[in-house]
Nucleic acid binder design. Structure first.
Lengths: 114, 114
DNA sequence: TTCATATTTCAATGAATATTGAAATGACAA
DNA sequence: TTGTCATTTCAATATTCATTGAAATATGAA
């Protein structure tokens, strides 16, 4: 992952609503969820949401596919993991660091259903 | 780590020069390096650099201490790791995900000395 | 004190960003 | 076809951001 892509991904995540959107999609897993469901869950105007989806998509953090009239958005896990890798890459120049972040298969936050 | 802090940290990193600065400090390790050395290494105007240091510091990603006339900046590894944790938290809602990012004690990028 | 070095503060400028409202597109049903 | 739902596009606005230049502050040396 090259630096411009890293900056783009970070910028995409560095916004309140987008961070929520992305986390929601991360929880939802590879199958993703329709734009409308995200809008409902996070109480966002549909055009605003489109704007944010666009930024996430441009940053490679999200993919879309159409299903009927719905657009299904899904997190792009590879990009996220590359991003994490870039940030920790070459950490401490060789010295032992703090424990690494991990992709925890965890408890649900029960917000997806809405 | 609360969401506003996560957003602040991501925003702090989501900028070309700051990402370079942070990575340089990550490589430099907990001892940090003087502002002037960072300025030289990255070819940044000192006032511009102060601006960026400020943002990194406000985001909790960096600490400062004075040493003579130099200000020594150092990466705050705990914040970075909390950040990574937040992003991957609850990943895939329970399903197995991609391999986690790790804090790799790695090869030097040979830029610190400048 | 005076001088030089290291870094910060301040003010101004141009560029990028998030949100809104209204209108448009695409897909499906009657 | 018409109507409706889901989402996107467009234009306008207010805010935030990065960079610059000049001046200020703080430390240490002569």
């Amino acid at each position: 992952m090259k630096k411009p892509d890293v900056v783009a991904a970070l910028a995409a995540l560095a916004q309140d609503n987008r961070l929520d959107v992305f986390r929601l999609l991360v929880e939802a897993g590879p199958e993703g969820m329709p734009a409308g469901a995200v809008a409902t869950a996070l109480d966002l105007a549909p055009n605003t949401l489109t704007f944010h989806f666009d930024r996430l998509r441009t940053a490679g953090l999200v993919t879309v596919r159409r299903d009927g009239r719905s657009m299904i958005y899904a997190a792009q896990f590879e990009t996220m993991n590359s991003l994490l890798g870039y940030l920790t890459d070459n950490c401490c120049g060789g010295a032992p660091c703090l424990p690494a972040a991990e992709c925890k298969p965890a408890r649900k936050r029960s917000r997806i259903s809405a």
